[in-house]
Design a protein around this nucleic acid. Sequence first.
DNA 1: TAGTGCATGTAATGCGTTACATGATTTC
DNA 2: GAAATCATGTAACGCATTACATGCACTA
Lengths: 176, 176
Amino acid sequence: MKQTAVTPVVLGLLSLGPLSGYDIKTVVDRSTRFFWAASYGQIYPELRRLEDEGLVEGEDAPNGRRGRRVYRLTEAGRKALQDWLLGPETTIEYRDESLLRLFFGDALPREQALGLLEARKQGHEQYLEILRAIDARAGQDPDFVDLVLRWGMDFNDWGARWCEEQLERLRVSKAA
Amino acid sequence: MKQTAVTPVVLGLLSLGPLSGYDIKTVVDRSTRFFWAASYGQIYPELRRLEDEGLVEGEDAPNGRRGRRVYRLTEAGRKALQDWLLGPETTIEYRDESLLRLFFGDALPREQALGLLEARKQGHEQYLEILRAIDARAGQDPDFVDLVLRWGMDFNDWGARWCEEQLERLRVSKAA
DNA sequence: TAGTGCATGTAATGCGTTACATGATTTC
DNA sequence: GAAATCATGTAACGCATTACATGCACTA
């Protein structure tokens, strides 16, 4: 079975219930996009491909005259999702621009370099607020969906504290 | 000035001292690749582009008959790096496959889903070991290079603990 | 009736990785 | 003398994003 970056998201979201391509994009933008984005240009072709492979089944479900096609996971699709979940990890790729900046902080006067740390801290704090807002309106999400949201909040909380600690440490070592 | 993903790494690494394209790739693979990768296919064309723009200067420094070209940052290049360091953040894109798996953990029987968390924990532990090994042989790195390494170790330490805590919490809630 | 949201889809573009080619030098 | 490392470079490929096109339905 062919795998691209979008395959597991589509399969995974459909495991939570039937969705249209548009729905999938909407849900992605409200949830996984924080650690796994997907665009229309990937989603629609992928849905057709998965249907050809028998992993999902599409059904026309128009709203009045407006077309709409809803997909649901087949048994084979659920199996494929589980195989992926239990299989070996393939993609290990992070891109953290703020960390890259920090890494080159020595190219800046000390005060401005510390500003980079301060900015990172604020980034964490803002992120935490966004996630808290999502958390507040989150109803009864499945356990592991909830777990990942919790991770996001805990991580950003930790990250903000870490920056603060280092800021203090570096300010002291500068004074020394 | 044109910016691609590889621009800041090249400029940044050259700010620490003159390097060849090959050197840059080697250093990247030992340091930034954890949060910012780069390939030969990006590095070599980028060096020429940056030279055309006057941000770096290349000098032939062959070893015997074997060609070698070493680049150093110009004043304009240092300025460009600083501008980037202080400018607005552009790329915010994470890909965390392990988190994506966790997110869809509900599609698995409970025990196997908890295995996903356990696997993530082990991932953090292994990563931590790798970084500790780097830390041990790290000599006198610049402050902020050091800071980022420290971040990596602290983050993975935190991550492993977090997984452990959640594992305990979920095991209890299951028993309830 | 104008604007927003629903809904599907594709073409162009840009970019990064992979794989390959070439050859010198060092090390075992 | 074979293997690993140094060193540069490019072409092909795959993939994801962006932008665009189209049109219905609801609501202020």
